[in-house]
Design a protein around this nucleic acid. Sequence first.
DNA 1: CGGCCAACCTGTGCGC
DNA 2: TGCGCACAGGTTGGCC
Length: 278
Amino acid sequence: MPELPEVETVRRGLLPALEGATLVEATARAPKLRFPIPADFSTRLTGNRIERLTRRSKYILMECTDGLIVILHLGMSGRVTIHDGTNAPEVYGKHDHVVLRTDRGATIIYNDARRFGLLVFSDRDTVQDHPLIRDIGPEPLGNAFNTDVLKAGLMGRKSSIKAALLDQKLVAGLGNIYVCEALWRAGIHPSRQALSLSTAEVETLTPIIRQVLTDAIEAGGSTLKDYVQASGELGYFQHSFRAYGREGEACLREGCGGTVERIVQQGRSSFYCGTCQN
DNA sequence: CGGCCAACCTGTGCGC
DNA sequence: TGCGCACAGGTTGGCC
């Protein structure tokens, strides 16, 4: 479910509760998500202080005082809720898999019905070489992502542009929704062969990818409440998509008049306008 | 190696 | 109300 903007919104929502806080409890209520939860999960984290909360692609990294780094991924259905001392649930939900409590009185719950998410340990000296992290491409909002890099990444690719942009080695953090949205904004058909994009099209697409993600992060940020006072679910926000999920509806591009269509590529839905995306 | 699909899981919504 | 099916925003192992 969550792509880069949702993960970033979760991270920002957790910041006031977790950064600089010491964990007074860490409980794994399920033996495994996508991978087994470390056997020493509780002992390694209890009493540990979270120095920094960062993000790499769709991964949230909790960097602890002793060098431990907790790598968290939300998979398709991972959800994070944050509660203050007054409203922490008395009964856990069926899929509440991980519970953290801080010395500031906050309770953080990770819930993941499908368990495609993951929580594993790494450490500050080797996290860059961690198998989950090391092959990820440039952050789309960072300087390392630009027209030249994207152009080079698409060069020689016989797959569709849709598949190419979903490849986390090419660029980090894009998922099904934001690839559809970026291609719609750029007026590029998702079935186009990646290698067929002209330099001009790549120059159009590159800033659009950044803008689509930036807009979504902004939309997410506006939903973040003051979680010192309130509590709730982080990272899921009402966001109006221009193409995604709009099969059969009118294209929203000014003056287009086309209709949004759905096709399946590599087993995943692509939404696009048959008229203005070529 | 590139590209594609099935598999990992559970929940939800829809047609009958 | 129940049943069966399609589908869901991610990732990867295995196969051609």
